[in-house]
């Protein structure tokens, strides 16, 4: 009985010791120096591996950060200010905190204001329907409502409004990772900085047709009337191809009210800006 115990303990222990020795030798011989900062940086990153930084994942972003020892051109939009500060602390460098960005949908042509003219029975996939036809409302620029962006969003920041048939962005949850920008076959999403109080000012339309054609399919289309250009500085608003574009640099507080209330079709969205009238969409609904 004692013999059995002795042999088994000593043989197993011996194997264990020998393996430990081999591992020790291997770890010394094949030791590869890795900057400990890489692991530290990776730990402060969100770990979503979403690719918003344009690197393959959080690990490769961390490697690049440590390699460059500079945060001026590297940014993790998902992590935001906390992550940037954390990385700066590890590297011991200064960082300017970038304003948080969100994705915004440049189309408001939902079912009530841009009623469907044809019924689409095919696959619910924007890329398929984009290749097949112009869209059920007839607008060849607007949202198809099949929800590729909702599927693409890793942060549950997008949801489909079942009545309107248009995706809705939750600006609180949105991390500006850009997945929806890539997913949309009609390039309807744009990333732009959002103010501290959630201020946003943008044209919710992408129709480049002449006003009368745009209006035919959608009551809230931008008709390119240029009224907005007159109430803003030159570098803030521009109308190209019958479509207005408000630059992210625009003074939101200064021109927001005038633009939003002045837009004859209600294509300009002003969110979180004081003094903007409640949008009366009922007026626009086409029966």
């Amino acid at each position: 009985m004692n013999d059995l115990l002795f042999y088994s303990v000593s043989s197993l222990g011996g194997i264990g010791l020998a393996s430990a020795g081999m591992l020790f030798v291997a770890s010394k011989k094949f030791y590869l120096y890795q900057n400990p900062q890489i692991d530290q940086v990776r730990d402060v990153l969100p770990g979503a591996n979403c690719g918003a930084c344009s690197f393959a994942g959080c690990q490769s972003f961390a490697e690049e950060v440590v390699k460059r020892q500079d945060l001026s051109e590297l940014n993790c939009p998902v992590g935001g200010a906390d992550t940037a500060e954390g990385m700066a602390e590890i590297l011991g460098v200064e960082v300017s905190i970038q304003q948080r960005s969100v994705a915004l949908l440049k189309c408001n042509g939902h079912r009530l204001v841009a009623p469907p003219k044809v019924e689409y029975q095919g696959v619910s996939n924007c890329q398929v329907s984009h290749a097949l036809f112009a869209g059920s409302s007839g607008c060849a620029f607007g949202c198809l409502g099949d929800g590729d962006c909702v599927t693409a969003c890793d942060f549950s920041a997008l949801a489909m409004d079942q009545i309107k048939g248009l995706p809705v962005v939750d600006y609180e949850k949105c991390t500006a990772c850009g997945a929806c920008v890539k997913a949309c076959p009609r390039n309807l999403y744009e990333l732009r900085p959002i103010g501290e109080q959630g201020e946003l000012l943008f044209v919710a339309c992408s129709n480049k047709e002449r006003g009368n054609f745009a209006k035919k399919n959608c009551a809230v289309a931008c008709i390119g009337c240029s009224k907005c250009v007159k109430s803003a500085a030159q570098q803030e608003v521009a109308v190209v191809d019958f479509l207005s574009y408000i630059t992210p640099a625009a003074d939101l507080e200064g021109i927001g009210v005038a633009l939003s209330d002045g837009c004859p079709t209600g294509a300009i969205f002003a969110l979180g800006i004081d003094g903007v009238k409640e949008r009366d969409e009922k007026r626009k609904i086409i029966k």
């Binding site: 095919g122 696959v123 398929v128």
Partner: peptide, 12 residues
Amino acid sequence: LPLLDYIRLAKQ
């Protein structure tokens, strides 16, 4: 199944 719709997508 909408086989052809997705095959067309893949072809594109």
